[in-house]
Design a binder for these strands. Sequence first.
RNA 1: GCGGUCAUAGCUCAGUUGGUUAGAGCACAAGAUUGUGAAUCUUGGGGUCGCGGGUUCGAGUCCCGUUGGCCGCCCCA
Length: 437
Amino acid sequence: MATFQSLPGFREFYPDDQVRRKHLFDLWRRTAHAFGFAEYDAPVLEPLDLYKAKSGEEIEGQLFSFTDKGGREVALRPEMTPTVCRLVGARASALKRPIKWFSIAEFYRYERMQKGRGRCFTQLNADIFGEPGPEAEIELIAMLTQCLTAFGLTEQDFYVRLSDRNLWCYYLAALGLDEPRTRAVLTAVDRHEKYGDEAFQGYTDQFGPIDAEVKAKVLAFLQVKSLAALEATLAPLGSEPITARLADWRKLLGGLQAMGLSRFIEVDLGVVRGLAYYTGFVFEAFDRKGELRALAGGGRYDDLVEKLGGPALPAVGFAIGDMTFALLLEQRGLMPAFAQAADVYCVIGGPAARAAAFADIQTLRATGRRVDYPMKDVGFGKQFKLAADSGAKLALIYGDDEVAKGTVKIRDLNDRAEHEVPRDHVTAVVRDFFTAS
RNA sequence: GCGGUCAUAGCUCAGUUGGUUAGAGCACAAGAUUGUGAAUCUUGGGGUCGCGGGUUCGAGUCCCGUUGGCCGCCCCA
């Protein structure tokens, strides 16, 4: 054995694993539909340039990429965003706005494995195109929240950190920083939680020591945890774009409050996320204990559709990955035990009885009933054990006696009560049993 | 790409200073049991001890290499 292994970082799903995984997807999909999102899908293999265009040349090192037999440079998709931007961009003028789409799809990244991170994983992606205002963020953050609460997770288990790239840019501009310095400060902000003061080393290397007053204000800004504090810090600056942006914040937080979601939301300007393409609000969901990597992340990317060759089209989106999420559910005991149970198990007396049973089995299965039976002739005692182990609610007993009489014995496997019915009534009786229960 | 750590049956693990033919529990299968269930008993299948090399009379055990897992760093769209 073990002559062949699965590739490093790839996962195999035996039935017990697959059923748990499917549970995630089922609830995510139901939630997305509840929010009025339409499902789409797209190729797993894409032109390498699609990702280079979005993320830069360096991205190739983290992709499963190769040259196909036609000489095309291709890559397994590492994310959905460029693909969905292409889909939407291509038909933007024909699609009814707002465009609310989601997908549940598998992605591939050539990375070192870690807890909650593999080389292949599944994400729910949800995006809204065509809505420039914070109404889109309200919708997406609400959906993100419900994608977690649908499993029984509460505000004790997770929270959503909300930040804003625009506000940072306006604020740093008001403090007199130019664009390159702004980017360097945002990089420092991104790293600050992890590295503390050393986070500013990159800035220092580029531009020399950061102005002490600016740094103090940046650090103070990181402490802002509420809209009130945000307004207190920014309103005095009297900056036009900042004033307008604060109105967006009020609208966003007001909407989430009206939906009863405030308890999940924390203002936290320490969230920056990838600098490459986010353009406005950004948000990330974390477990409260802080033991796991991010559960989900998203934000606004108003320039990307156009950058990838489509029309100018505002967009916001988020993604939830399955690996960290499953870890959290396991930790909190919220992963149900799934029994892959049959509805009906047939106990079969012998070759003659088998023929009679097969006819009914086929009829029941055609109506969608999950019916199972032993493939080989085995003793009755063993068959009843098999019936119990199968998780079925009913056993249908086809013994020689019953077959001779033209009847079938029906046993309720929960209370062990039995009764006999004529064979041509069996399918109706079984149907009634399951409709009633 | 870098560092730490681990690898014995499907799973959890034992295996003495290197010493006969590598074990247990669980799981699986057959039987006791051709008409009634979570029990019991008996029996069985299943291992190139991750792989390769070295030391040795002798290696699951010691040494080197390698592959893979886990944890962390870099990165994280």
